[in-house]
């Protein structure tokens, strides 16, 4: 398994967050994390990437305990969480070079490759402060893909992208999975997840409602959106009772 979460919980002081999240991702699998705003998708991703300390539970990336050995676990991981973290006063190339320094095999050739992949070669020497939201998102994707990670974590990667950009993200995800990477992707948009994920996990109010294969979901409901709405309504009714 590339990613294993076992009862991962992160509860903030205000009581929100994510609780008892457990799932596993094998090479080539794409898990779509679907949930409304504030449901705990980003918190789960942040806990995996070490941006927040889990309250309890474990995260294993390629068999490495990511909480205890962050450095080793992150060698296998590429992340784009929330808005891309970019240094505005530096160029696209400088941002990529900084990230590249942490990986042994990532050279200038690979930087050119990812810039080409996200269609940003023309802007490599431009300062990030001059970029549009979509360009920033593309550069964020390039940063996540730079080390050819075995685990790719993408939080709302289509944010700010136009139609072409959204199709492009889908291609990036399927390409990474076809090369054996495991991809964890979150979105509000069920149809986006439906088109690229092999599995979907529905998260609501910080709780994981279900993890199902896409075939399983589509055999029960006409679409992922319908499945999601059915799961959420069922949970609401159960809680009211």
């Amino acid at each position: 398994m590339i990613l294993e979460l076992d009862n991962l919980s992160k509860v903030y002081k205000n009581g929100r967050g994510a609780e008892d999240i457990s799932f596993a991702l094998a090479p080539g699998e794409v898990l779509g994390l679907l949930g409304p705003n504030g449901s705990g998708k980003t918190t789960t991703m942040k806990a995996i990437a070490g941006l927040v300390q889990p309250t309890r539970g474990t995260v294993r990336i390629c068999g490495i305990d990511a909480v205890k050995n962050h450095e080793a676990a992150m060698k296998h991981t590429g992340c784009l969480i929330e808005a891309p973290a970019l240094y505005d006063h530096m160029t696209a190339l400088q941002n990529l070079k900084m990230a590249a320094r942490f990986y042994k095999g990532v050279d200038n050739g690979r930087i050119d490759e990812v810039l080409h992949l996200v269609d940003m070669e023309k802007y490599r020497k431009d300062k990030v402060s001059t970029f549009s939201l979509g360009m920033r998102q593309r550069l964020g994707l390039a940063l996540a893909l730079l080390s050819e990670p075995e685990l790719l974590i993408l939080d709302e990667p289509a944010n700010g992208l136009d139609i072409e950009g959204m199709i492009y993200v889908r291609e990036v995800v399927t390409n990474a999975a076809s090369k054996g990477a495991a991809v964890l992707i979150s979105s509000h948009l069920a149809h986006e997840i439906e088109q690229c994920a092999t599995k979907a996990a529905i998260i609501y109010s910080g709780k994981l409602l279900c993890v199902e294969s896409m075939e399983g979901i589509l055999s029960q409901s006409p679409s992922l959106e319908d499945f999601f709405l059915a799961q959420v309504s069922k949970t609401r009714i159960e809680r009211m009772e």
């Binding site: 941006l51 992150m74 060698k75 991981t77």
Partner: peptide, 14 residues
């Protein structure tokens, strides 16, 4: 500016 994430997600201990 939320930029620290760029380095915190990389293989380096805090």
């Amino acid at each position: 500016d939320n930029n620290l994430k760029a380095m915190l997600c990389r293989p380096v201990e805090r």
